[in-house]
Amino acid sequence: MNTIFSALAEPHRLHIVELLRNGPLTVGEIVDRLGLSQPQVSKHLRVLHEAGLVEVHPIANRRVYKLQSQSLQAMDSWLGPFRRLWETQFDRMEAYLEALQAKDSKPTDE
């Protein structure tokens, strides 16, 4: 999991993953969308590939990259307990705020 998070910690690599969320792209398409040089994009894609976040399919002289679902599923599973913790905290905060609103909306006797 450390490898995945380390790979995603770099902003350009995170942006590449976000671009690939919409479907596979060639290196050239990623270069055009990010405005980086081809060697820079290739370096970032290599790191993402080594982390298991993307897979590559050579087609003729082009390389098409797409997200690797298994790594994303593993990351989602790892985040699951944290998500439940956050949801519990948000539910408590919502209940507290509703109680405050109910208290404030009660008519006062004057």
Rank of each mutant, 00 (worst) to 15 (best):
L79N: 11
K103Q: 12
Q89P: 07
G52E: 00
K66V: 08
R92T: 05
S77M: 09
H12V: 08
A7K: 00
D91V: 14
D32M: 09
P58W: 08
H15P: 02
H12E: 10
D104M: 06
V41R: 00
A102W: 05
L67E: 01
L72S: 04
K103I: 04
E10N: 07
P11D: 06
V41L: 02
R63I: 05
R21V: 14
N2A: 14
L14Y: 03
L19G: 03
L72P: 01
K66D: 07
I30E: 01
T88D: 10
S105C: 07
L67N: 03
P11M: 05
L100D: 05
P11Y: 06
R83N: 10
N2T: 13
D32F: 05
F5T: 10
A74N: 11
Q73R: 15
L53Q: 01
L48E: 03
R13L: 00
L36I: 04
F90W: 14
Q73V: 12
L8C: 05
E18W: 08
Q70V: 13
R83F: 08
A7Y: 00
P24Q: 13
H57T: 15
L53V: 08
G28M: 13
N22M: 14
D91Q: 15
L97Q: 14
M75Q: 07
Q68K: 13
V41C: 02
V64A: 03
H49E: 15
F82L: 13
N61D: 15
L53Y: 00
A99T: 09
L53N: 01
R84W: 08
I4Q: 01
R92I: 09
V27N: 02
A102S: 08
R33K: 15
E55R: 14
H44K: 04
P58I: 12
K103P: 03
P107H: 08
K106R: 11
L100M: 10
P39Y: 01
A99M: 07
L67Y: 02
N61A: 14
A7W: 00
R84F: 10
A95N: 15
W86P: 05
A102N: 08
L36H: 07
H49P: 06
F5I: 09
V64T: 05
A51D: 11
D109I: 12
D109T: 14
L36T: 04
T108L: 12
S77V: 07
S37E: 06
V41K: 00
R13H: 02
F82Y: 14
D76T: 10
R21D: 14
P58M: 09
T26Q: 03
S6L: 10
A95Y: 09
K66E: 09
P107W: 08
T3F: 05
M1S: 14
L85G: 10
R92N: 13
E18Q: 12
D32N: 08
F90M: 13
S6E: 12
Q38F: 06
L14I: 03
Q73M: 13
E10H: 06
L85C: 05
N2C: 05
L25H: 00
H44C: 03
V47R: 00
R92K: 12
E94V: 12
T108A: 11
E110A: 15
T3G: 13
S42I: 07
A9C: 11
L72E: 01
F82S: 10
R33H: 07
V56R: 11
W78I: 09
V54Y: 00
L14A: 11
I4F: 03
N61I: 10
H15E: 06
P39L: 03
L8R: 02
Q68L: 09
V56F: 06
E18M: 12
Q70Y: 08
F5V: 11
P58H: 13
G52H: 00
S71G: 10
